[in-house]
Amino acid sequence: MKRSNAPIFWLLFGAGGMLSALFGTVLVFITGIAVPLGWPLPADLLSYPNMLALAQHWFGKGMLFVIVALFAWHAAHRIFHSLHDLGLRTGALAKLACYGGALLISVVSAVGLLSLGF
């Protein structure tokens, strides 16, 4: 019997769903609202030296990658399955667009983070 690859996608979907349910709201608030407005967090919280230090630390690097990649895989899996609900065809092309998009985001993030060094 051919092994199904569904559990892998399901695992990535579940992990990303849990991570985004726990931290998604506060992350959007920090990076998208609090820091750009400079309130209630300082505007220089995400300054270049700060972010460089975060991205060059092994733990910070890992966290950034896990957040971006798992958010992308979670969303891709869910959007792919919602296409059917919208009456759209869910063929190989749709699958490639959804999971391929998540893969692209993961690879681009990994390359960017690794190029910053440790």
Binding site: G16, S20, G24, L27, V28, T31, G32, Y48, M51, L52, A55, L64, I67, V68, F71, A72, H74, A75, A76, R78, I79, S82, G101, I105, V108, S109, V111, G112, L113, S115, L116
Partner: peptide, 19 residues
């Protein structure tokens, strides 16, 4: 899920710009 995808793209762009 679309919002989660959009945010992932925003963050991924941030990583690219940082690099």
């Amino acid at each position: 899920a679309v919002a989660v995808a959009v945010y992932a793209v925003v963050l991924a762009l941030g990583i690219v710009r940082l690099a």
